[in-house]
Design a protein around this nucleic acid. Sequence first.
DNA 1: GATCACATGACAAGTCCCGTCATGTGATCA
DNA 2: TGATCACATGACGGGACTTGTCATGTGATC
Lengths: 236, 236
Amino acid sequence: MTHAIAPCILIVEDDPDTAEAMAQAACDVGADPVVRCSYAGGLAAAAGAEFAVIMFDRMLPGGDGVDAIAKLRAAGSTALVMVVSALGRAANKIEGLEKGADDYLAKPFDPDELRARLRALLRRKAMVALDNDVMVFGDLEIRLKARTVHIGQAHVALSPKEFELITYFARNAGETVTRMQLLEHVWNLHFDPQTNVVDVHVGRLRRKLEAVAGRAVIHTARGQGYVFDPQREGAA
Amino acid sequence: MTHAIAPCILIVEDDPDTAEAMAQAACDVGADPVVRCSYAGGLAAAAGAEFAVIMFDRMLPGGDGVDAIAKLRAAGSTALVMVVSALGRAANKIEGLEKGADDYLAKPFDPDELRARLRALLRRKAMVALDNDVMVFGDLEIRLKARTVHIGQAHVALSPKEFELITYFARNAGETVTRMQLLEHVWNLHFDPQTNVVDVHVGRLRRKLEAVAGRAVIHTARGQGYVFDPQREGAA
DNA sequence: GATCACATGACAAGTCCCGTCATGTGATCA
DNA sequence: TGATCACATGACGGGACTTGTCATGTGATC
């Protein structure tokens, strides 16, 4: 499961009423809409954040949304692209689909159909994420199936126990996790072994993460336990 | 990269001329079409093989293709589904999309548009595969990024060296691989160590695969080397 | 039957992982 | 400031796994 953050949908549309209807459809399917009204503004927004779906009009101030697709892909974007356009003949659809759009909807559109197609695209998007059970915290990414951790492009080499630890921490991100919780859920022990096994292992994990991230990722809550918060600034 | 096997597209359509046009479009986009003319026949075909895309008509002898989607999903199918139907009003499209279709095309369709939409679906299908660099041989699946091997639903536990071996074999599937090739590419040795290290390791890998697959996967080419062919019948 | 190619069982060495222990460091309190 | 406690870190040893080697059994060919 992708960490519980609503997907973002970028809408690039110069007609305010149409943009409004598209934003409403995005909200209706549980996504956060971000609206831009020009070709350049749309490209800039796409470069600045992760979007699950990008909806482009064709005749925009500054360019044709279909031409933006190659630019998005060249920049590494994996967003699914829906073109929404008054250019609705089959030839227009074919051109858009062949230039890399994932769906093409002609204007004027039925809002219910737009919603249904957005849901279908988001289902598709979820397939990739579900296939790897990804948890993302800024530049820190945990792939549960592949059992890998990356910070930015850098792979963090973890032992099996360290991976179990960070998984438990990630599932309780931002909350204080006690040593007894870790003993129960990571070591499957329901008593105190009277050793500092938890401290030692958490220390190992911390040093590996800090070496790559260049900042503290696991913080000590003195007298309580630890807090996993990769996006907090400052020392442990 | 998915191993160079053409994707299969299942077409469930009772009108022969339409089925023919759809099969032609599938061929045109580089896929192998499999055609069925009844609802039950379509479901049976879907259960019997892996399809990248399944195209269902709605008014089929025996049922409505839209109703098949839930059955496909319950059976674990990850095929993308396109509904192609004379029922082409927005309400029909919405119903199909909300019942899980990935795309919906009204009849009569423009063959070029059908092709473009098939390509878009296959691109999406490739997204999932690319994310894990999957090599598939029938029921045997190698995920290069996760470094896992599954036969059907069963995980095959391989050591690092065994995984390197099967990867090299898979990249040369169906061809005879010599011991010297394996020494060079898997062991990075460019001389004969005068031991039977290759034989021993290949033997270990073979026994693990055969234990799960219930059939020989790696075959001996006497005096030459080995052939990786998981889909061949018969002993080694 | 002899010889060669290949398969398999067993062993030893190296590496990694994990837990324990001892001790150093930092925080808190009287 | 010193004592005490909480936590961090370095080091060690044992167990598990991986890998390569060797010896020998088995099958194929002549």
